[in-house]
Design a protein around this nucleic acid. Structure first.
Length: 568
DNA sequence: GCCGTTTTCGGCCCGACTGTTTTCAGTCG
């Protein structure tokens, strides 16, 4: 028996109870029990006090004992006998919840998508009390498109939707200010929708203008406080707009940034003090409504530091809030150690990239073009690299406010050899090694390649260590735990690639790396000036892993960077 | 079903929108 099985059992029990129309708080109790186990970092064998955990009581405890002793749960078995499995997909139909499904089953014997569709088509559903013609039509419509709608979209796709919507919001003069909220603001890897807080005194006008201007596929709900639509932008994307007044902005932004778990924790905190948090402010015991200029003030009201949106995850961030001051912020970043120029597959010259980094206020940077093996990227031969080194050295003499280091993003070849020999690597300030080929090799072969690179004395860093593209490909499946151990052993940097296509390493691995005292660099891997901006979203994502400023080497001042990295 | 330095019973985070109702339940985020 393991913890995952127990968690899944609780979730199944909750699901079946929901379908039976059970008391939502009872259903919630099983979900909460699952959540309690999920949040506990210990494995099952380490949890000798599992039955006394807060949230585990008599009922949920009995399920755990059943599972440990017999390997199965009597309660779940009973429920499985009672509830036809065909009902489960019905919960995915928008507009149908446990209560309605239970009602349909009671009155019409609905036990599957098929029987529900038949009942709608023969107009039986609209005769059930509480249902009507519109509901029947809506169910039929939803059944038709069930499964065609995409689930979550990767952050880079969501980003383009957000940028497009923001442009429309800026064009509406009745809007005084707005902000994206939701999972994109929390820098999640994937999102199922986009949320915006919109300040306006004319919600009706703004609503109509949005409906006119945006590519609306479907209007889900349209009131004076909110607008919910489905946008047709490359993919279908749900979008929510909340209309608020200026003094409600901070609390509304907080509320619709979430996460749900974070909000629940905050509200419980407020409730314990006799206050009530809503999107409109904090209601005191005497009924007066307190509003805030900023989220910072809102948090301060509850004696908390500003909790960055990306940290608002499972609620534990509230207990860990005293650690926040040490975390890396965008303002801490002094350098970008991975970028490309027209010498390989970048879009801008060295000088243009330097000027762009100067504008960002960086104190140093590294030019790291691809190497000869990567033909498609116009990778540099040793001769061209030596020419580039000369040019960079010359250019560096022109600037006294930024230090330009000579680097490379060298390919790790399929057989484990490196694309340049040590003599050439010695001439460089900073050497990145990366895998760009033969992703389908066995994990053993991949790890041999990585070991060959990370153990080379002239290599400083392994870039995008897993090669993943969010929502598109898994990468080359290295044993990251082993890679982290090697990084520690050979004292090498692991990259966190800030490009939203990659976000590589993922946050769980970043946390593990920091735990192991491995140095991390946050780099944009920019192939164009515009992509240097990804440093910002990258830092936000890195905060999710609770990365400290000290862990991130490109927060270090130039002197320390030279001392401890370049001249090491 | 779970919980209690305000409670062992009566709450459980809060509010918007829709549709089906004549005052509100269900769903959603």
């Amino acid at each position: 028996m393991n913890k995952k099985t127990i968690i899944r059992t609780f979730e199944k029990i909750a699901l079946y109870m929901e379908l039976l129309g059970e008391n939502p708080f009872k259903v919630g109790a099983f979900r909460k029990a699952a959540n309690v186990l999920e949040l506990d970092p210990r494995s099952l064998s380490e949890m000798d006090d599992i039955l006394s955990l807060k949230g585990i009581g008599k009922g949920t405890g009995a399920v755990i004992i059943d599972l440990i002793e017999k390997g199965e749960s009597d309660l779940l078995k009973e429920l499985e006998n009672e509830v036809p499995s065909g009902l489960i997909p019905l919960l995915r139909v928008p507009g149908l919840g446990g209560k309605k499904i239970a009602k349909l089953r009671e009155t019409l014997g609905i036990d599957s998508i098929e029987s529900l569709r038949n009942a709608c088509e023969s107009n039986e559903v609209s005769k059930v009390p509480g249902f009507g013609k519109k509901t029947e039509e809506k169910i039929l419509h939803e059944l038709e498109i069930l499964g065609t709608r995409k689930g979550k979209l990767p952050v880079w796709q969501i980003e383009s939707v957000v940028l497009a919507v923001e442009e429309v919001l800026r064009s509406i003069q009745e809007i005084t200010r707005f902000s994206v909220a939701g999972s994109f603001r929390r820098a999640e890897e994937e999102s199922s929708d986009v949320d915006f807080i919109v300040v306006t005194d004319e919600p009706a006008i703004v609503r109509e203008k949005l409906l006119e201007t945006l590519p609306v596929e479907e209007t889900v709900a349209a009131g004076d406080a909110k607008l919910s639509i489905v946008l047709d932008m490359a993919d279908l994307v749900d979008a929510d707009f909340r209309f608020v007044t200026d003094d409600q902005f901070a609390t509304a932004l907080h509320h619709f940034t979430g996460s749900k778990d974070h909000n629940v924790k905050m509200r419980q905190l407020a409730k314990a003090k006799g206050m009530k948090i809503s999107e409109y402010g904090v209601e005191l015991e005497d009924g007066t409504m307190e509003t805030f200029k900023t989220e910072k003030e809102f948090f301060a009201y509850f004696d908390l530091p500003f909790i960055p949106p990306s940290l608002r995850m499972d609620g534990r961030e509230i207990e860990r809030s005293e650690e926040i001051a040490q975390l890396v912020t965008f303002e801490d970043i002094r350098s970008d150690l991975h970028m490309h120029t027209t010498w390989s597959d970048g879009g801008y010259s060295i000088r243009e990239m330097v000027e762009a980094c100067r504008k960002k206020g960086y104190s140093h940077m590294v030019i790291t073009d691809h190497t000869q093996y990567l033909r498609v990227a116009n990778g540099l031969t040793p001769e061209r690299l030596r020419e580039q080194i000369a040019e960079i050295r010359k250019l560096n003499d022109e600037y006294d406010d930024i230090e330009i280091f000579c680097g490379t993003e060298m390919d790790i070849l399929p057989d484990g050899r490196l694309d340049f020999d040590d003599d050439l690597l010695q001439e460089l300030d900073f050497v990145i090694a990366s895998i760009h080929s033969n992703f389908n090799q066995s994990q053993e072969q991949i790890m041999e390649r990585l070991h060959s690179a990370i153990s080379n004395p002239y290599v400083h860093m392994i870039a995008h260590p897993t090669g993943r593209i969010i929502g598109q490909r898994e990468g080359y499946n290295p044993d990251v735990h082993q890679l982290i151990k090697w990084a520690k052993e050979y004292d090498k940097i692991l990259e966190f690639n800030a490009n939203p296509y990659r976000f590589d390493l993922a946050k769980e691995y970043l946390e593990e790396a920091q735990e192991a005292n491995v140095k991390i660099a946050i780099n944009t891997d920019a192939h164009a000036i515009d992509q240097l901006k990804h440093m910002e979203i990258g830092v936000k994502y890195a905060q999710k892993a609770w990365l400290k400023k000290e862990t991130v080497v490109n927060t270090w001042p130039l002197g320390r960077f030279i001392e401890e990295i370049i001249r090491k």
